[in-house]
Design a protein around this nucleic acid. Structure first.
Lengths: 250, 250
DNA sequence: GAGTGGTCTAGACCACCTG
DNA sequence: AGGTGGTCTAGACCACTCG
């Protein structure tokens, strides 16, 4: 029990509920509280953290807001299976993009992660730190039921990502690897959508004829690391599978 | 002052904070608290509603969550200019769709609201009530800086929408009219995106050549009326203006 | 300095779920 | 019946904004 909690001394860098929120979030991300499990009850946390119950509730409500847990009256706080999509063309798992999940989804890597120079000009404005750090580039194709549906080019500034190019992705997922190995979480997404004609290369990879309409998306992912943004350029074959997106409001 | 508040009697249909939330929301929507204005302070609401301050705060935090107000420490609760986009290709105001707001945006109605039979098959599954009610159909073109950027076809089941076809839209906005006149709010959105080739009609309205790539979007809007869904089919000319979308997390 | 929202305490009763 | 989260009270000190 900390004296700082007895004395009314909560003018610290972060309020207590934020600390508790971060503690619980970290334990969820690292699997210490596993999917579907119950968090300690509000009463237990109140005692172990030596705070009022409303402070515990504030922390838990932040976790609900961020999609880490679901609260059930009379039961407890349940750890969600994954952080929910932020609502748009899910960027946590590709399988969500095509809507239903019972489809056979595969990914094949065309260009394994490697450090390259940034393309100039780049499709979003880069800052000096990003430019000088260099760029990790990956190019992948996504399949649904043996059909090529998406060509994905990802650009990551090489900032504090030791051994990124030397390892395999966890479960084949880039974003899962970033989350677990580097504690990088996606907080926000900016994107621009266009309908364009496929050039020869894109057409070949997506099994289309050159000039066929293709949905093109530029993306900028904002992460919990102040200086780290991740960029993607996506080409989607929407002939057979539309790009679905549904937002769940509150 | 109600006796029911003195006695601990909060097992009513809706908890007090929800009632207060709804009251304030209604007053914001109807312009009784206008854009940029300050709501009564938490302390004033505590007294006028005869509740604890934490109950007031709960109501206000819901309004923040829904984008109706912004709280500023030391200042107060400020009414937002509009309900924020739910994150994707804003469906509250078209001007958000093209990103910046300082562009010259216009709308022209091709087919004024009129009752028609539903197209069969329709692009989303309709239920019996929708089918038997008939359909209000509107077709509009959106301009940005004199360029045609979007052809929008909207389908609304004719359920409790008296005189809808006889009136003009408030500020030219369909959704604003639905909100103010009929108290219909959009809660959720499902959509499917495709890149297609423009047919002759679409090409003509969007000032493109036939066969040019066009971004096509089917939309289903979920509203606060249990039985009312609104449907749209959008054709976007993305030659000059990409469809922007940014999600603001938490 | 007066007022605002942010954080927090130490209680209470309620509706709900599970054994 | 006992425990859970949901709602609520009546206080308190804090950091911030404004006149």
């Amino acid at each position: 029990m900390k004296i700082s909690n007895i004395v009314k001394n909560y003018k610290l860098a972060h309020p207590h509920y934020i600390k508790l929120y971060n503690n619980l979030k970290r334990q969820i991300i690292h699997g210490i509280f596993s999917e579907g499990a119950l968090l300690p009850s509000e009463n237990e946390l109140r005692i172990s953290e030596n705070v009022a119950r409303s402070t515990v509730r504030q922390a838990l409500n932040e976790l609900v807001k961020d999609g880490y847990i679901t609260k059930k009256k009379g039961l407890g706080s349940i750890v969600n299976s994954r952080v929910k999509s932020l609502g748009l063309l899910s960027f946590k798992g590709f399988s969500d993009v095509v809507g239903e999940t019972n489809r056979n989804v595969k990914t094949s890597i065309i260009t394994p992660p490697a450090i390259i120079d940034w393309e100039q000009p780049f499709f979003y404005q880069l800052n000096k730190k990003e430019l000088s750090a260099g760029c990790i580039y990956v190019e992948r194709i996504r399949f649904v039921n043996e059909d090529q549906v998406m060509l994905e080019q990802t650009y990551i500034p090489n900032i504090n990502l030791q051994q990124f190019c030397e390892q395999d992705f966890i479960n084949g997922s880039l974003f899962r690897t970033l989350s677990i190995t580097y504690h990088i979480e996606i907080n926000d997404l900016v994107q621009d959508l266009r309908a364009i004609e496929a050039d020869n290369r894109v057409a070949r990879y997506l099994n289309l004829s050159a000039g066929a309409p293709v949905l093109h998306i530029y993306r900028k992912y904002i992460t919990n690391r102040e200086d780290l943004r991740i960029y993607s350029s996506l080409f989607c074959n929407t002939k057979k599978y539309a790009i679905g997106s549904n937002y769940r409001h509150s």
